[in-house]
Design a protein around this nucleic acid. Structure first.
Length: 556
RNA sequence: UGCCCGAUAGUAUAAUGGUAGUACGACUGUUUUUGGUGCAGUUUGUCUAGGUUCGAAUCCUGGUCGGGCAACCA
């Protein structure tokens, strides 16, 4: 029937597991964000993967907040993360928190101490680091390593009870200080933090490290396939070590390459800097690669899901072209966005032979891609119009299909006109152009027999409303700002935002709705910004249309 | 210089020992009342040197290149 689509390597693993009856064919994944920032397009890839792959194999996905570091986390982030996942169109099975397991994790730690596999360390962070050795030299034991089990139990209990200041003691796993895998050189399991946790408050003053929380949480939930990004590959031996020593459910970790995209940054640390240092207006600034930023910019959930599908899943490092994301949103919006006419850079056009004061209503389909145009709207027309300044050239080149002295164009949804003359101000700028219209050329009932090459958009000067338009360009001037010398912020594109205070919009756009895409004909896709107030719409440009003319004219 | 990943067109991603394909990009033509869309087509690739094999992108060995690992972050 349908074309067999090739599987990515994770799907192959899962199909293999199902064939072999592993976990009785059960598939349970999890999406485990730390609530210390907003989700970005890279997380969207992971969300689509985790939720998508589970759904494909009749499994489920838990949402688990990996909240083991109270000093960086906040409920604001928890709420934004939940909203973004739902907006993308996914439903989690259980909403869970690593902090739900603090008691259980503590018991696990006690168990390991009793097994002689964990000890309380009293060296400083620097001393610990030094004693770990280097990749080419083995580490050396600290005096704490030989502490008795009873003393370890006593001290760990004291840590929990808050008898020690931050930094005084940590709990370490006793693995192998000579391991060629640095991660196995007695990693930290617990540290003291006298901090307020966003869920457990002051109940705890010791917090498990990632390595002692993540795998165990997976295991407690009986996650079958714990999918994470490549930077966790070195953690896998430890992940397995803890599970084995604790004799708990053997969740398995698999890694794929995280998404990198050119002309932006994708680390929460850097995104946080952009927000805190006011390079952008917030996490949802339309220039941000965050899901909330893309939403505000006008991206649709479908476009992001399609994007995630197209970029694929592999273990190779990648740098995806922004143009692919743009293709995905154009593809979706072309099929769904209502067409409207807006003049961004206005020039007055007067039709000399059209009766002054007369108005007509022209009819325009909402979307020519859809059946019956997806309905129609009325567009007022009169003898005075606004057209785009770059749709007129005083001395047009050969390939220019628009207006110039003596040239004819079609006014979209209206008449064919011919340019007769134009006016200039004292500094040489064109201020007004005068035309003649062909009465029998009206759209739909054209009997003029005239063919013109160009069609331009316009807005009736009498009926026009106005709006603020925000145009966005890539946030960075270079493809990979993190890879450049110096601070990545030096490479921010100073022209990433252009504000047009007063654009002329056709009246129907006063009814524009949030999170609905509009195509401003010949200009791009736009959506209403949440800063809009009644009677004062603000539009964000989601993405331009492909513009073959811009390329053509750049050549010369 | 210890350990671990990885390497297929500009960018991604398939081919699971048997014709190197697909998408985006680029380019050409065509349609079009959006220089948009659609349609048709062109272009460019298996890191390298050996080996195994009738046959290698795929398996083996060496090399090269790229990335990661020594946070009281996740």
């Amino acid at each position: 029937m349908s074309e067999e689509k090739s599987l990515n390597f994770l799907e192959e693993i899962i199909e293999d597991d199902i064939r072999n009856g592993k976990n009785n064919g059960r598939v349970l994944t999890r999406f485990p964000p730390e609530p210390n920032g907003y989700l970005h397009i890279g997380h969207a890839k992971s969300i689509c993967l985790n939720f998508g792959i589970a759904a494909k194999y009749n499994g489920k996905t838990n949402l688990r907040f990996d909240d083991t570091n109270p000093t960086t986390e906040d409920v604001e982030y928890v709420e934004s993360i939940k909203k973004d996942i739902q907006w993308l169109g996914f439903k989690w099975d259980k909403e869970l928190y690593s902090s739900d397991y603090f008691e259980q994790l503590y018991d696990f730690a006690v168990q390991l101490i009793k097994q002689g596999l964990a000890y309380v360390e009293d060296s400083t962070a620097e001393e610990i680091a030094t004693a770990k050795g280097s990749p080419t030299e083995p580490g050396t034991p600290t005096p704490s390593r030989s502490r008795s089990i009873d003393e370890n139990l006593l001290l760990f209990g004291e840590m929990k009870e808050g008898k020690h200041p931050e930094g005084a003691l940590v709990l370490r796993a006793k693995v192998d200080l000579a391991s060629p895998i640095m991660h196995l050189r007695d990693p930290l399991m617990y540290r003291i933090k006298h901090a307020q946790h966003h869920r457990t408050g002051n109940q705890w003053c010791i917090y498990p490290m990632y390595d002692f929380a993540h795998g165990q949480s997976d295991s407690i939930e009986e996650i079958t396939h714990s999918i994470c990004t490549l930077e966790f590959v070195p953690h896998r031996p430890l992940y397995e070590w803890f599970i084995q020593k604790l004799s708990i459910f053997p969740s398995k970790q698999y890694e794929f390459a995280r998404l990198n995209m050119n002309y932006t940054v994708m680390s929460k640390r850097k995104l946080l800097q952009l927000v805190n240092e006011k390079y952008v207006s917030g996490w949802d600034d339309p220039r941000m690669p965050t899901i909330s930023g893309l939403r505000r910019r006008g991206y649709t959930p479908l476009s992001i899901r399609n994007f995630s599908e197209r970029i694929g899943i592999a273990r190779r490092e990648n740098l995806i072209d922004l143009s692919l994301l743009e293709f995905c949103i154009r593809e979706d919006l072309n099929k769904s966005a209502w067409r409207r006419m807006v003049v961004l850079d206005p020039l007055k056009l007067i039709i000399n032979n059209y009766p002054a004061g007369k108005t007509e209503l022209m009819e325009g389909e909402n979307n020519p891609e859809l059946e019956d145009g997806d309905g129609f709207r009325q567009i007022p027309f009169s003898s005075e119009l606004w057209i785009e300044r770059d749709d007129f050239m005083e001395e047009p080149s050969k390939k220019y299909f628009r207006l110039g002295p003596g040239l004819m164009v079609r006014l979209k949804h209206a008449y064919i006109i011919r340019c007769d003359s134009f006016l200039k101000d004292e500094s040489g700028n064109v201020t007004e152009i005068h035309c003649t219209y062909i009465p029998e050329s009206r759209s739909g009932t054209d009997t003029s027999g005239i063919n013109v090459k160009g069609t331009i958009h316009w807005v009736c000067a009498i009926a026009a409303e106005t709006a603020e338009i925000r145009l966005y360009d890539r946030l960075f001037k270079v493809e990979d700002p993190s890879n450049e010398a110096g601070d990545f912020k030096e490479y921010i594109n100073p022209n990433s935002l252009t504000v047009i205070n007063k654009a002329f919009i056709e009246p129907d756009l006063m009814n524009a709705e949030l999170e609905k895409g509009y195509q401003f004909i010949r200009k791009g896709y736009f959506s209403l910004d949440s800063d809009s107030t009644p009677g004062k719409p603000i539009f964000n440009r989601t993405v331009t249309l492909k513009d073959a003319w811009a390329k053509e004219s750049q050549k010369s």
